[in-house]
Design a protein around this nucleic acid. Structure first.
Length: 472
RNA sequence: GUGGCCAUUGUAUAAUGGUUAUUACUUCGGUUUGUGGUACCGACAAUACGGGUUCAAUUCCCGUUGGCCACCCCA
């Protein structure tokens, strides 16, 4: 039946593209789409700018990352949550703030069919705050601890470790003002990376309360105005718009000016100062490496007190932050909830994976120079031969799977030789062979790929034999 | 958003203002149908897109798009 359909398709297609088809080439489905007959142009599709696919070769790495973030956030008592990718754009404009780059130039904003201004989320915190308020989570035992992972969108120019759709993992703790919350979040972020085998350092600062910051900004702007002529053009513009951003400018002339500038730490209220000191004490106690960075301010407006970013210690990749976060005690109220303290962090998973792959590449290079050590784990391939064996194959595979055993296979191939080649390419240590003869007497062959020795195994006992192999 | 470098099959590459665009790897098929690691044969597959110069452009020029990198900023 399938054959018939295929034939039909082929006939149709061969009419359409007749001119191009050589006489003896079979017409097969092509990955490129052939447009109308009148227009013989091929149309190919690619990912949009700044978007990318996770390819088969990287799938395992991503899964490993997902496993670890799930384990760690669950162990620390965070509950998994999801929110829509699409939100009202004003949610982010109000929380992240006008004047920030994220809002002013990086948001994917468009009008929905009913005219609503919507956008693809550029980050998760505002969505979770919205969810906290909308779903009355203040009635749950406080604090509410949530973790998530998912794609975020920022219309930025693609660059090393930067994509327009990128993946974040993060945790948010809402409803508790204790500084140990901040330390716990930093600890989760730090230990996630450690579990993944990445050494990292926390860059940390406090930007105080809104009041502290207003006082400081008055002082800072006064200072900057007095040094105006020494600043870069970009920074001159920012004196009025967003003076805090000048702090972490990388322009040489700005850095020189900032050396003498008043530091926000000196303008913290006694309470804010004490809070910051407490956070640092907890970090010391937890033996989490950090550096104080008085110029660290973050590009989002909602932060209060603690702000931090995480960098890998790998020198070649240390210029991009793997993650960041901080406290945002005013945000929940600002978005329509009760006054509620909260804090959170996010890790950029694309960047984490980049670091992991970089480490792996390095390791592979070193290993390829050294003589190979045979630490191969056992893998099993299942090959079938002949019509009867082919029909029996799914049954046997399913029985093995029920026993929790993974065997590689390609049932669509009929030639034993081809299947052996495949087994060899995959690097399996053993191959199960089911042929006509074996089907009839209820046995199966087990071939050791290194020695070439084959033994006959009872089909009923196969699972046990394979299990023993795979345990090694 | 600004700037620099770049664009040939799935990947990596060669070449040319003028016949059928090179080679390797991968993929698929085969070397008589129940046995892999080698070897041999064969097949599929590319000049990103649009315009200009020219008798002729994949090659030269311009634009667009995309990639990499830096800035801005961030994850």
């Amino acid at each position: 039946m399938t054959k018939k359909i295929n034939d039909k398709k082929n006939i149709k297609k061969s009419v359409v593209v007749k001119k191009e088809v050589k006489k003896n080439t079979p017409v097969v489905a092509k990955k490129t789409v052939v447009a109308k007959a009148s227009n013989e142009k091929k149309v190919t599709y690619t990912t949009l700018r700044g978007m990318r696919d996770v390819l088969p070769k990287d799938g395992a790495t991503w899964q490993k990352v997902y496993d670890i973030i799930k384990n760690i956030s669950t162990a620390y008592g965070f509950s998994y949550v999801e929110t829509p990718v699409l939100e009202q754009s004003s949610l982010f404009i109000r929380s992240i703030g006008k004047g920030t780059d994220v809002v002013d130039k990086e948001m994917y904003v468009f009008e929905d069919k009913d005219g609503t201004k919507v956008c693809l989320r550029p980050e998760m915190t505002a969505s979770l705050v919205r969810s906290y308020v909308e779903n009355g989570m203040q009635t749950l035992p406080q604090p509410v601890k949530m973790w998530y992972h998912g794609q975020m969108f920022r219309h930025d120019r693609p660059q090393a470790g930067r994509f327009r759709q990128f993946y974040q993992f993060g945790c948010e703790t809402m409803g508790d003002a204790n500084p140990i919350i901040d330390a716990e979040l930093i600890s989760v972020a730090y230990n996630t990376l450690r579990d993944l085998g990445i050494d990292s350092v926390i860059h940390i600062n406090s930007i105080g309360t809104l009041q502290d910051r207003e006082n400081y900004i008055v002082e800072l702007v006064g200072y900057l105005r007095s040094k105006r002529s020494y600043l870069s053009e970009e920074s001159k513009k920012r004196i009025n718009k967003n003076p805090l951003r000048i702090l972490d400018s990388k322009e040489e002339q700005d850095i020189a000016v900032m050396e003498e500038a008043p530091q926000i730490v000196d303008w913290l209220s006694p309470e804010s100062k004490k809070f910051f000191t407490n956070v640092l004490e907890y970090l010391d106690e937890a033996e989490i490496p950090y550096v104080l960075d008085p110029n660290l301010v973050r590009g989002l407006d909602y932060y209060t007190n603690t702000v931090f970013e995480i960098f890998t210690e790998d020198e070649e990749l240390a210029s991009i932050a793997l993650g960041g976060g901080g406290r945002y005690d005013g945000l929940i109220e600002q978005l329509g909830g009760q006054s509620t303290p909260a804090a959170g962090f996010a890790l950029g998973l694309d960047r984490v994976v980049t670091v992991l792959k970089h480490k792996q590449d390095k390791l592979d290079k070193e290993n390829s120079q050294k003589p190979k050590e045979e630490t191969r784990t056992n893998k099993v391939f299942f090959a079938q031969l002949g019509e009867q064996a082919n029909k029996k194959a799914l049954n046997i595979l399913e029985n093995l799977r029920r026993e929790g055993l993974t065997v590689y296979h390609n049932l669509a191939k009929s030639s034993l030789k081809v299947q052996m080649e495949l087994a060899n390419k995959i690097g399996t240590t053993h191959t199960l062979i089911l042929g006509q003869k074996e089907v009839q007497d209820g046995s199966i062959l087990l071939r050791n790929m290194d020695s070439g020795i084959q033994e006959v195994v009872d089909q009923k006992k196969v699972a046990n034999v394979i299990r023993k192999l795979l345990q090694n």
